[in-house]
Amino acid sequence: MLSLVVLLWAILPGAAHAAVDLAITSLVTNPNPMTSLANPEATVTVTVRNGGDAQATFVSVQLLTTGDAEQIQTVTCPVAFSPSPDPALAVPTSCARGTIQPGETVTMTARIVVAGTSTRVPSFTHTATAFQVTPTGNVPDPTPADNTASETVTVTYDSTLTPDDASGGGGGGGTTTKAPTVSALTLAPSTFRAAKSGPSAVAARTPIGTVVTTKLSAAAALTFGVERAAAGRKVGGRCVAPTRRNRTAKACTRWLALSSRFTAEGEAGTNRQRFTGRLGGLRLAPGRYRLVVTAADSRGRVSDPRRAAFRIVS
């Protein structure tokens, strides 16, 4: 008799069903980034609420930024959520596998750094999405439109610095009003074994790793970063992390910035350093990568990033 009552409750029109109702209730960036300075930072805060009457399990909260113009450095996840992908391999861009109780609100924060650029970008767009990797029961989210939120951040600039597109100064030891430029970045060889120990960079004559050659328009401090290739899916014109929902979308390659960097002093003209395949005191795992370099002068003006692909073998 009890089984019949339960069956009738499930099929009768108008019967109440417990449902999850996820919503992005807030998406805020603070402070407003300034791209005329070297490595400006900001924090993006994403707030998610479960307004339904059922527990939301296997929840992921993902943040997308403006491509190469800015990079996520770290994420801080709510209790019982895990950073994703594996932070030992690349910088996470989402918090995954979490649970949100009915009526509960959780918050994820991400620290972003604006990429060095000599082109003034008028704005950045941040998009946050919350979804269940494994939906609760068979009851759909009653308001799926509020599972995603976007914000456009207008970029401000430091008025004390000369605009990067101003006319150049004279030669013969004179100064320039433009940011330095990296006109070339090459690695030879582009496939090599990572060193078992030691620093990220050593003298070019040392027989290990690969020789990195850069060409600079002026003396500048060089900052080298590494991006790791990862699987992705093409969604809305962007390459995003694979999920159960987008598993049938076209495959693509995401480039995930590793959190550590190494530096070197560069002179005008050709510079050479030897990269050992180590970063942050760790040996890079076998796989495909890109070396990224920017040059910053003494006034804080930063070049556009330049990239070169390489492969680490075992």
Rank of each mutant, 00 (worst) to 15 (best):
A257E: 13
P180N: 00
V202P: 13
G174M: 00
T175S: 12
N246I: 07
G172M: 07
V79K: 08
T117Y: 01
G168I: 04
A69N: 08
T148L: 03
A130I: 10
D158I: 13
T160E: 09
T136R: 04
I24R: 06
T148Y: 00
P87C: 05
A285Y: 03
R193C: 07
A110M: 10
G281L: 00
F262H: 12
C95H: 10
R278E: 13
S60A: 08
V313F: 01
N147Y: 00
A10I: 09
T57S: 07
E70M: 06
D164H: 08
T119H: 10
A90M: 15
R120Y: 13
M34L: 06
G103W: 10
V44Q: 04
N50R: 01
T223Y: 01
V202H: 13
R111K: 15
V235Y: 02
C77T: 03
A229P: 07
P189M: 04
E227K: 08
A204H: 05
R306F: 01
A54I: 07
A249Y: 04
V6H: 07
V212R: 07
G277Y: 02
A23E: 13
P207L: 09
P242S: 05
T74H: 02
E227Y: 02
A149K: 13
V91S: 15
L161C: 05
T107E: 10
T223R: 15
G67H: 03
V48W: 00
S82Q: 05
N138C: 01
G209A: 03
A241P: 02
V202G: 13
A257Q: 14
Q273F: 09
G52N: 09
V313E: 12
I208R: 11
G14W: 04
L64Q: 12
R120H: 08
T125L: 08
A54H: 08
V139W: 06
F124Q: 11
P144M: 08
A219M: 02
E70C: 02
H17Y: 08
L291H: 11
L258V: 04
L187C: 04
A257M: 14
A149M: 09
T176W: 00
A219H: 04
T134W: 03
T243V: 05
R97D: 13
A130Y: 07
Q132T: 12
D53K: 02
R244D: 03
R238Q: 12
R254V: 08
V59T: 13
N32I: 14
A18S: 14
V226E: 06
A38D: 13
T109M: 08
S94C: 03
A264R: 13
P163A: 13
A42P: 01
G172V: 05
V182I: 15
L216Y: 12
T253G: 06
P92S: 03
V302A: 04
F310G: 07
F262I: 07
A130S: 14
L216M: 07
V46T: 15
